[in-house]
Amino acid sequence: MRNILIICRKELKSYFASPIAYGLMAFFAAISGYFFYVATAIFVRRGMESAMMGRGMPMDMSEWVVRPLLMNISVIGLFLIPMITMRLFAEEKRSGTIELLATSPVRDWEIIVGKWCAAMILYTAILSISLLNFSFLFIYGKPDWKPMLVGYLGLLLQGGCLLAIGTFISTTTKNQIIAGTATFAVCLLLWVLDWVSAYETARWARVVSYLSVVTHFESFAKGVIELKDVVFYFSMIFFGLFLTARSMESLRWRA
């Protein structure tokens, strides 16, 4: 446990010692701010229109603002994650510091979990910027906070599973750019896998669609926690970190 904390702290320091963390935060703040503005603008306009038409039914803020925004953030996450994970192991391999870690009395899995936790903390910090947007909803309205909480839980789980995959990819190369690009490709693939279900309903299509990380996020965005989605995310996180451990071990045998 102590070792995990040591590694995690060191990784976080490196993130914030370089412009990466700040750059990603600024990028995310801009994009999510823009999406928030568009979603609320549409909501306000529709609200005014329906009031003028004399329909008394109030519009649901969760459905019109919160849910689309959470879905958008989950897609932005796909772009952020490669930038977060690409350096984790690739940089250590390039500069030779992996030799320091591997010859210190620390277990491989402690290094891996430490690094993954640091990536998780940075990702959470970036996501939390969007809370600023949502806080405006609480000032001017009374949105339900529970589905929002569930949505954020889903974002964290989805992020954790992609971060685990990115960590694995980072162990396979010395080159950060290659690690980042490959992770982005895999993230994109895991997102679009969901699209086959749009035109195909055969069993294979359902299996492929099940593997998509976005499919499992949809219910979270609606404010529903489903066991099968939680299980999916946790098993993906475990699987990603397991592959990382295998890959790190193979470094020693191949070296």
Binding site: S14, A17, S18, S95, G96, I98, T103, P105
Partner: peptide
């Protein structure tokens, strides 16, 4: 590992 100190050919340093 607890009992060895190791200096590889290129020192394992973090420039940042």
């Amino acid at each position: 590992k607890k009992r060895i100190g190791y200096l590889p050919e290129s020192p394992p340093l973090y420039p940042e």
